[in-house]
Design a protein around this nucleic acid. Sequence first.
RNA 1: GCCGGAGUGGCGGAAUGGCAGACGCGGCGGAUUCAAAAUCCGUUGGCAGCGAUGUCGUGUGGGUUCAAGUCCCACCUUCGGCACCA
Length: 804
Amino acid sequence: MEFQAYDPKRIEPKWQKIWAETHAFEALDDHTMPKFFGLIEFPYPSGNGLHVGHPRSNTAMDIIARKRRMQGYNVLFPIGWDAFGLPTENYAIKNNIHPAIVTKKNVDHFREQLQKIGFSFDYSREVDTTDPDYYKWTQWIFLKLFEHGMVFRDKTLVNYCPTCKVVLSNEDSQGGKCDICHGDVVQLPKDVWYLRITKYADKLLEGLKSVEYPENIAQQQVNWIGKSTGAFVNFAVKGTDEKLEIYTTRPDTLFGVTFMVMAPEHPMIDKYADRIANMDAIRAYREDCAKKTEFERTQLVKDKTGLKIEGISGINPLTGKEVPIFISDYVMMGYGTGAIMAVPAHDQRDWEFAKKFGIDIIQVIKGGDIEKEAYTGDGEMINSDFLNGYTNKKDSIERVLEEIEAKGYGRAGVQYKMKDWAFNRQRYWGEPIPLIHCPHCGVVAVPYEELPLRLPEVEDFQPGTDGKSPLARIESYVNCTCPKCGAAAQRETDTMPQWAGSSWYFLRYCDPHNTEAFASKEALDYWMPVDWYNGGMEHVTRHLLYSRFWHQFLYDIGEVSCPEPYIKRTAQGLILGTDGEKMSKSRGNVVNPDDIIDDIGADAFRLYEMFMGAFDQAIPWSTNGAKGCRKFLDRVWRLQEMLVDSDTYSEKLMAMMHETIKKVSLDYEAMKFNTAIAAMMTLVNEMYAAGSVTKAELKTLIQLLNPVAPHITEEMWERNGFGSGMMRAPWPQWDEAAMVKSEIEIAVQVCGKVRGHIMVPADLTKEQAEATLASHEGVQRFLAGKNLVKVIYVPGRLVNFIAK
RNA sequence: GCCGGAGUGGCGGAAUGGCAGACGCGGCGGAUUCAAAAUCCGUUGGCAGCGAUGUCGUGUGGGUUCAAGUCCCACCUUCGGCACCA
């Protein structure tokens, strides 16, 4: 019979069909089995389809999932669609097609592309965040948050274009210009809904200790939360009964305060407007600030601007001294109390401000040269009354806090950089917020039994020119009756942000068709927590924090039984274009996986994605490199021509077989796919060198390779009669004893330089190693005329002779 | 500015403090072919040498060590994140 060449175009559709028809990858109902829940970030189904970046994460988790099945686990490896979002809405507006139709088309396209790559997803558990059966539960969780006081309404500053009368995202208002009309954007206060994530700041920090996140990911979360410890101190305001509260991390420098600064938006300014002599100038300064975007405000760091408030001033509670109050935009309303005590001697920003405005600088910590710059180091306290002589920052802070608290001037406190989560958008394509504004009862929740609150059908998805959502134009939607008192009331018309649906999707995977709950208790108890979650670095702060927050909240109210949703998180690096730049449509360097699969097949594509470099690093795409992976699969396939009918490993390859099993098994777990594949390539090279391969050797090789290249290996498994059900065949085991060799080659060094190699028995002792000195002429040449002072022997590696 | 990565052949990249460059791409030489593709075999860090061999080599400058890509100190470049956070 003519040997048939490797033909992925025939093999791949064949196995994809078999897997689908036999429901091969559906999670089993047997809850007595050990479980493995592997998760990848569900994709946003954009109109551009899949790019080669998506499969990198998917293939990695697919490898782990397939390996786990062979290790006897009941595996849940699901897929779904994070389908609400702006790009779809914008496309819908532009082409006048309903976003739901666009979404369906995109989802179908994505699914088809994913299936062509042969991922072992359980498609029977697909979720779609835009499906009312799904967002019913997103709304349900929101109402639970509302019920427990985790939702509140407050003002924020938004980017607003007065010409277009529309609220803009930060991306659409870069450089302070409107992306649509290129006019000036202003910062406008607007009422928005917030989720009280800051209440969970400490729990989110604490929880990091019980999970397995790589150091850099955990650190990014810690930085984002940005916990600082310090003190709130009240300064009396001369001329009023009011106290101005500030936050500081350095209460020990209180004696060095020479002025105070408020954020331009600070409410105290308006409150005492009639006592402020230069209110006109202050209003003008405020307007200038409002024009600046967040971006500009943080760019002009060096040149501090500001204005002294004439008419009110602060009193230092410890010294009783009067200090002037300024406004400046280097103080933010959104952090601390929106006001600071300024210590120019020991804070660089305060120092710059003081120099510009000619304010006194009082040094209270010895060290540095405060004429040149602020001194932020440690030192002995001076000019500080009862603190004088303290040399340790911790001690002086403790002492001053004692004093402040005893006299009622303030208290110790913590602050977080993390802000509460602004939880609404003035857009159509999102989950409707299930709240009702009643003129008598205030804000009232939509009753649970009325969920899902469906998105109404509209003709026009354009955002309103008044900064309101398009839903606000649908009278039949807006007008309703209050569920509490029955009075005529109005619905909230904003929708939830895209982060909402992705904050709990992994829970729905556990029991996706449940109509009574977001998932049954039983399913949650079995499947949760997620054992391994892989995704992009770009999501390790916000998405990870948001979803951990929701989960911790659900845990606190008894809806889930584990406090942390993910046991282990990993992140893959980006795949760049062949030019080394980030892939983007505008750069024209996007590589489409369909083309690659058409050329070399899905298995070779998967193989290359994993082989191209370290998994967690950004790597440029190389089409030649991908072709090399196809070449390897061709070589694997042709091993079938060299087959020897034996169900044991050959003497020659015995050690290497076991070494390869070990290397591949451990490297897969450590996500070192590139070296795992390299080890298999080395093994195949050795098989070619040996000229033959036994059935047992081939069987093991294709099992090791199966998670990466499932189609070709299933086909070879079948052709060679290795039995049915490759995907649940036991994972190969290695035997350390079989790896031991009787003779090994070690390096011989003289004074640290390699001077030769020598074959020695593997169990060579140090004494025996020293004796080899005499027998090795290469060594003697370098030792001639010198005295041997020391011999270092590293078993199995080298022997080093030190001579003088 | 702060936090976290990364700098190794022509290229992507390997390397528990122990022989730098595994594996792949590309290149070169050969076999096969009428020829080419594909395939197989060999070779491939720089410099010197016909050669055995020698010598220099992991961003820069110091240091620790018998031994440093790996550890320590100072710096340069680059990528990601945060950023007037009091």
